[in-house]
Measured scan of single mutants.
Amino acid sequence: MASQGTKRSYEQMETDGERQNATEIRASVGKMIGGIGRFYIQMCTELKLSDYEGRLIQNSLTIERMVLSAFDERRNKYLEEHPSAGKDPKKTGGPIYRRVNGKWMRELILYDKEEIRRIWRQANNGDDATAGLTHMMIWHSNLNDATYQRTRALVRTGMDPRMCSLMQGSTLPRRSGAAGAAVKGVGTMVMELVRMIKRGINDRNFWRGENGRKTRIAYERMCNILKGKFQTAAQKAMMDQVRESRNPGNAEFEDLTFLARSALILRGSVAHKSCLPACVYGPAVASGYDFEREGYSLVGIDPFRLLQNSQVYSLIRPNENPAHKSQLVWMACHSAAFEDLRVLSFIKGTKVLPRGKLSTRGVQIASNENMETMESSTLELRSRYWAIRTRSGGNTNQQRASAGQISIQPTFSVQRNLPFDRTTIMAAFNGNTEGRTSDMRTEIIRMMESARPEDVSFQGRGVFELSDEKAASPIVPSFDMSNEGSYFFGDNAEEYDN
């Protein structure tokens, strides 16, 4: 783990906690998980779902989305002020799938948001429990990260689609708070800032007046979040320049895209947490497990152990491969979309394939898809080993990566060399080191050039047997250095459309 220093740990961010010791953190995270579980059980009762239907990941996603929508204050306010045809701002819903006479049927349900809020609060001892809501947002974000390569979004903001390893959390809503900021990748933060800068260039009043003052505060806050992700002084200094700019424009845009590229080699610290679907927490609570009393951590053995003992089902389209669908969801559960496939294969105990080789589309089923041909199958979400999630980018030494994705962002704290394609990355730096950030740029390029592919990161860190909950005997895996390590390699994943 990167030293926490003055930073709060993510469990504290996750639970809005002030400084807590490890036991208190485990208890408050457990409380959050228990609340999600209780809410899910109650919703299944309301909807009269069978046990099997309640364990269907598509039903879980609909129920999670309903509660997130019920608590989305800004959108609710907007919907009330701008009524649109056929949208009731006070209601929320989605597809629920039921097994009827041996076939899967889709039923569109509609609930009062007020009623959903009441059920959620009741499951969370009367609190709004925003930490639990954020947790579900991060699960949705991790699922998107594993399912889609955001080529269009990258290109629109002047970045290269091969930089997708920097895009963790790119679909997280803005209201996801400190826990959300911690899991956002460098590219995601750059993209958010670039969008602001572009608006400022096109709209003279963007930075002016009372609204402009708020915009400015948001801009500086985002700059500080991004600065905190960088691990070298030169990158941090460049972020200070971007933040202090009187009138952010093209120079800042250039600096930010430069920094994003540099992060492929001088990786930023991005938190990883295993956020599971509500249909995993519900049955665990129903079986009598007391998360608050037992304590829970999002970055240790607990999620692995929970998945070892969970039964989750998914709808499967006619030509999809259930094992591939399982891999997709497994990666999402562990926030591992940008991790090295060699490491993932070792931990999972079966070969993890790149996205383009998977015969599976996303987990969600569109409303126009034919239910007649839908089957369902068990998702295999178990693992051979477990490993500690990392909050750091690993040290800054790398190795060759593949054509589709030119770097990785480690999820697990496991000893290995970190793949990246130096030639491709360095070719993108057209040696432009003039301007006010020239000395920093020169320094950053120097550090990137001296990074050695064969150097090892996370020295001495290994994986653990599932029986080793105290992480007492690390097993340090050895990897084939020459092997392909990137998930979005030469990829044809669908595009994420909101």
Score class of each variant (00 low, 15 high):
residue 284 A to T: 15
residue 298 L to H: 07
residue 486 S to I: 06
residue 55 R to E: 08
residue 364 Q to I: 13
residue 197 I to A: 04
residue 388 I to S: 11
residue 451 A to S: 13
residue 133 L to H: 02
residue 459 Q to E: 11
residue 35 G to L: 03
residue 468 D to K: 06
residue 446 R to K: 13
residue 87 K to F: 07
residue 211 N to C: 15
residue 305 R to P: 00
residue 251 A to T: 07
residue 55 R to P: 01
residue 482 S to P: 04
residue 10 Y to M: 01
residue 379 L to Q: 07
residue 69 S to D: 05
residue 270 V to Y: 07
residue 67 V to C: 07
residue 126 G to P: 00
residue 383 S to K: 05
residue 86 G to E: 05
residue 182 A to H: 12
residue 216 R to D: 08
residue 134 T to G: 00
residue 188 T to G: 10
residue 65 R to L: 04
residue 350 T to I: 08
residue 21 N to F: 14
residue 307 L to P: 08
residue 349 G to H: 10
residue 149 Q to E: 12
residue 496 Y to K: 08
residue 199 R to E: 04
residue 113 K to G: 02
residue 102 G to C: 10
residue 55 R to D: 10
residue 43 M to R: 05
residue 423 T to G: 02
residue 357 K to A: 01
residue 272 H to T: 04
residue 170 S to N: 02
residue 368 N to F: 02
residue 335 S to W: 00
residue 296 Y to S: 14
residue 484 E to R: 08
residue 109 I to Q: 04
residue 425 I to T: 15
residue 53 E to M: 08
residue 358 L to A: 03
residue 419 P to G: 00
residue 137 M to S: 03
residue 90 K to C: 01
residue 106 R to M: 10
residue 284 A to K: 10
residue 69 S to V: 13
residue 29 V to L: 10
residue 7 K to Q: 09
residue 430 N to D: 05
residue 383 S to N: 13
residue 61 L to P: 00
residue 486 S to G: 03
residue 129 A to P: 02
residue 34 G to R: 10
residue 20 Q to L: 11
residue 66 M to F: 07
residue 64 E to F: 08
residue 450 S to K: 05
residue 181 A to G: 10
residue 149 Q to R: 12
residue 372 E to D: 12
residue 430 N to G: 08
residue 14 E to I: 02
residue 128 D to K: 08
residue 254 E to A: 09
residue 478 S to Q: 07
residue 363 V to D: 10
residue 490 G to F: 05
residue 121 R to M: 11
residue 5 G to K: 04
residue 65 R to T: 07
residue 220 E to D: 13
residue 79 L to C: 10
residue 373 T to W: 01
residue 187 G to N: 04
residue 349 G to A: 15
residue 51 D to K: 05
residue 61 L to R: 00
residue 63 I to S: 00
residue 324 H to L: 07
residue 367 S to N: 11
residue 105 M to D: 04
residue 252 E to V: 06
residue 187 G to Y: 05
residue 280 V to W: 01
residue 248 P to I: 10
residue 280 V to G: 01
residue 161 P to G: 10
residue 47 L to A: 06
residue 368 N to S: 13
residue 317 R to H: 01
residue 219 Y to T: 03
residue 150 R to Q: 04
residue 459 Q to D: 14
residue 232 T to F: 12
residue 489 F to N: 04
residue 366 A to F: 07
residue 280 V to I: 15
residue 464 F to A: 03
residue 488 F to I: 11
residue 103 K to R: 15
residue 486 S to F: 11
residue 273 K to Y: 06
residue 298 L to Q: 13
residue 211 N to T: 13
residue 246 R to W: 11
residue 339 E to I: 03
residue 117 R to F: 00
residue 136 M to A: 01
residue 279 C to E: 05
residue 224 N to V: 00
residue 402 S to D: 07
residue 358 L to H: 10
residue 304 F to L: 13
residue 74 R to M: 11
residue 328 L to R: 00
residue 402 S to M: 02
residue 132 G to E: 03
residue 254 E to F: 07
residue 424 T to M: 04
residue 160 D to L: 01
residue 237 A to K: 06
residue 70 A to H: 03
residue 184 K to P: 02
residue 380 E to P: 02
residue 311 Q to Y: 12
residue 282 G to Y: 00
residue 490 G to K: 08
residue 398 Q to I: 15
residue 50 S to C: 14
residue 384 R to C: 11
residue 266 L to W: 06
residue 195 R to M: 04
residue 271 A to S: 14
residue 168 Q to P: 06
residue 148 Y to T: 01
residue 444 I to C: 13
residue 302 D to K: 03
residue 278 A to W: 04
residue 484 E to I: 06
residue 462 G to T: 00
residue 24 E to T: 14
residue 386 W to A: 12
residue 477 P to H: 10
residue 386 W to P: 00
residue 80 E to H: 04
residue 310 S to L: 13
residue 162 R to L: 11
residue 35 G to T: 11
residue 321 N to F: 05
residue 146 A to M: 08
residue 468 D to Q: 05
residue 464 F to W: 06
residue 468 D to E: 13
residue 323 A to T: 06
residue 46 E to M: 08
residue 230 F to P: 02
residue 161 P to W: 02
residue 480 D to Y: 09
residue 29 V to H: 02
residue 130 T to K: 13
residue 277 P to H: 11
residue 190 V to S: 11
residue 91 K to D: 04
residue 69 S to G: 09
residue 120 W to Y: 09
residue 237 A to T: 11
residue 405 Q to R: 10
residue 395 N to F: 14
residue 185 G to I: 01
residue 287 S to L: 07
residue 409 Q to K: 10
residue 400 R to M: 11
residue 69 S to C: 09
residue 83 P to C: 08
residue 335 S to Q: 15
residue 430 N to E: 14
residue 234 A to S: 15
residue 378 T to C: 05
residue 339 E to Y: 03
residue 207 W to G: 03
residue 233 A to H: 01
residue 49 L to G: 00
residue 217 I to K: 10
residue 415 Q to S: 09
residue 475 I to K: 04
residue 66 M to K: 12
residue 80 E to R: 09
residue 96 I to V: 13
residue 105 M to H: 01
residue 397 N to R: 15
residue 461 R to C: 03
residue 227 K to Q: 13
residue 326 S to N: 13
residue 219 Y to N: 10
residue 5 G to S: 13
residue 31 K to R: 15
residue 276 L to R: 02
residue 388 I to F: 03
residue 343 V to R: 07
residue 246 R to V: 06
residue 33 I to D: 05
residue 188 T to N: 04
residue 176 S to I: 00
residue 266 L to S: 06
residue 454 E to F: 13
residue 367 S to H: 05
residue 91 K to I: 08
residue 105 M to W: 06
residue 413 S to D: 05
residue 487 Y to F: 11
residue 371 M to F: 07
residue 300 G to D: 02
residue 265 I to P: 06
residue 454 E to R: 07
residue 23 T to I: 10
residue 310 S to V: 14
residue 173 P to I: 05
residue 367 S to D: 01
residue 127 D to C: 02
residue 66 M to H: 04
residue 39 F to D: 06
residue 337 A to L: 01
residue 407 S to Q: 02
residue 32 M to V: 11
residue 219 Y to G: 02
residue 424 T to S: 13
residue 200 G to V: 12
residue 25 I to K: 09
residue 158 G to F: 09
residue 51 D to T: 12
residue 169 G to H: 14
residue 411 T to W: 04
residue 50 S to E: 10
residue 254 E to Q: 12
residue 276 L to W: 01
residue 447 M to V: 09
residue 245 S to R: 08
residue 233 A to L: 01
residue 372 E to Y: 06
residue 292 E to S: 08
residue 58 Q to E: 09
residue 485 G to N: 10
residue 167 M to N: 10
residue 297 S to N: 03
residue 301 I to S: 10
residue 78 Y to L: 02
residue 361 R to V: 02
residue 191 M to W: 05
residue 61 L to N: 14
residue 97 Y to I: 10
residue 229 K to E: 12
residue 398 Q to D: 00
residue 372 E to I: 08
residue 7 K to P: 00
residue 278 A to S: 15
residue 401 A to S: 15
residue 372 E to H: 08
residue 6 T to M: 08
residue 335 S to H: 13
residue 368 N to D: 08
residue 111 Y to L: 15
residue 327 Q to D: 05
residue 477 P to G: 01
residue 14 E to A: 07
residue 178 A to C: 00
residue 467 S to V: 04
residue 356 G to C: 14
residue 346 F to E: 01
residue 315 L to I: 15
residue 29 V to Q: 08
residue 42 Q to P: 08
residue 172 L to N: 04
residue 143 L to Y: 07
residue 296 Y to K: 12
residue 440 M to F: 09
residue 64 E to W: 07
residue 390 T to I: 13
residue 380 E to T: 07
residue 18 E to Q: 14
residue 132 G to T: 07
residue 148 Y to V: 05
residue 358 L to S: 06
residue 357 K to H: 14
residue 386 W to E: 05
residue 14 E to F: 12
residue 469 E to P: 02
residue 412 F to W: 04
residue 276 L to G: 09
residue 349 G to V: 09
residue 143 L to T: 15
residue 360 T to I: 13
residue 377 S to N: 10
residue 463 V to G: 13
residue 97 Y to R: 00
residue 199 R to C: 08
residue 240 D to R: 01
residue 380 E to M: 13
residue 239 M to Q: 00
residue 15 T to S: 04
residue 49 L to V: 15
residue 137 M to N: 03
residue 492 N to Y: 11
residue 137 M to T: 11
residue 14 E to H: 03
residue 167 M to L: 10
residue 159 M to K: 08
residue 437 T to I: 14
residue 486 S to V: 01
residue 376 S to F: 05
residue 476 V to G: 09
residue 3 S to P: 09
residue 144 N to E: 01
residue 340 D to F: 02
residue 84 S to V: 06
residue 251 A to R: 02
residue 486 S to L: 01
residue 202 N to I: 10
residue 388 I to W: 09
residue 361 R to L: 05
residue 25 I to F: 08
residue 136 M to Y: 05
residue 421 D to Q: 04
residue 292 E to D: 15
residue 22 A to M: 11
residue 479 F to H: 15
residue 33 I to S: 08
residue 350 T to R: 15
residue 245 S to L: 03
residue 454 E to H: 09
residue 320 E to M: 06
residue 461 R to L: 11
residue 244 E to W: 02
residue 341 L to P: 09
residue 177 G to A: 14
residue 287 S to T: 09
residue 224 N to P: 00
residue 382 R to V: 04
residue 382 R to N: 01
residue 290 D to P: 15
residue 313 Y to C: 14
residue 215 T to V: 10
residue 108 L to A: 13
residue 288 G to E: 13
residue 153 A to S: 15
residue 217 I to H: 02
residue 13 M to E: 03
residue 428 A to M: 15
residue 196 M to V: 11
residue 363 V to N: 08
residue 361 R to A: 01
residue 292 E to N: 11
residue 264 L to H: 11
residue 155 V to I: 15
residue 283 P to E: 12
residue 234 A to R: 00
residue 400 R to G: 08
residue 357 K to C: 00
residue 279 C to N: 12
residue 215 T to F: 07
residue 93 G to N: 04
residue 208 R to K: 11
residue 404 G to H: 05
